[in-house]
Amino acid sequence: MQKASSVAKTIDRAFHVAAGIAASSPVVFLAGIVTIVVIQAMPSIRFNGWHFLTSLTWNIGNVYGGLEHEHGVTAASGASFGSRVFIVGTLASSVIALLMAVPVSLLTAVVLAYRTRGALRAILSTLVELLAGIPSVVIGLWGMTVLTPWISTQLGPLLSRVGGVIPYLRGPVGTGMGLLASGCVLAVMTIPIITATTRDLLLQVPTLYREGGIGLGMTDWEVVRHICFPCIREGFIGAVALGFGRAMGETMAVLMVSGNAVNLLPQNLYSPTSTMAAFVADQLDSALTDASKMAVHALSELALLLMVLTVATNLAARRLVSLGRRRQWRTGVDAR
């Protein structure tokens, strides 16, 4: 008896230690990653200063030439690092993605929540969620082989003819690789996220509220527009912000269709562009050949910037989604 209980105690102690380590690991990982990225970015922050946010030029310098010293740090001669192209590219492609994804997701979510039932709803929901599981490189490949030629030969020329009054629709279409193509692949990747979250929010709107509208002779659209949507507004904005965070951080698919422009800002909707995530992935290899290591530090600073942006977006999104949920609950109780 005594022996068994001591074994049990040992197991319990092991359990507590294991659970403690497991539970603390996310925090430790997050802190560790942040620490490492910040440490890696420090020399670049000192070297570039605010210039990093404003300059258009990203030049790792002549790594086969000499070194230069500035602000107590060393870089390849001629090096200067500016991330404005990538900040603009990241924000612009993500916003374009949302412009496409938000209406599609909202309508899909309405259909899933209210217009389908039982097996059909389950199948459609699963399909939407499967879309989220497609590896981004596959979507990128589709973008590269199907989407960009189509933009180049069909959609682009059409848009630039029809929408010529809007400055950003005018101008040369080029290869089809650029902002619009990036926006499209990002839309494909954000739609499942926004749709699934919105569907869940819509399902939380009490049937009683919707029937109030239906019973008053509202059309389906009017019910969604005037009753359901106002109920889920905060949560929906949160869902969109989640999608935005996902779009900003996406790497591979964008890398394959963005045209990866450096040193210049997009001129129109079709211009080649680069995003922060894609650029970091792309440039790390050659950055490693920089003997001064400044190229790696600069990429770390870019990664840090991206991390700050996505973490802030995600925090805001989560806050809004939970606000939306709480509001649901509160009004539900009041109606009693």
């Binding site: 009683l208 509220y209 029937e211 019973g215 008053l216 002779g217 106002p230 009004t331 109606a335």
Partner: peptide, 17 residues
């Protein structure tokens, strides 16, 4: 039809927003 035949429900359901 619903504009001609109005309805009041078991539990009050004013539009919450």
């Amino acid at each position: 039809v619903r504009r001609m035949v109005g309805m009041v429900f078991q539990r009050p359901n004013p539009f919450p927003t």
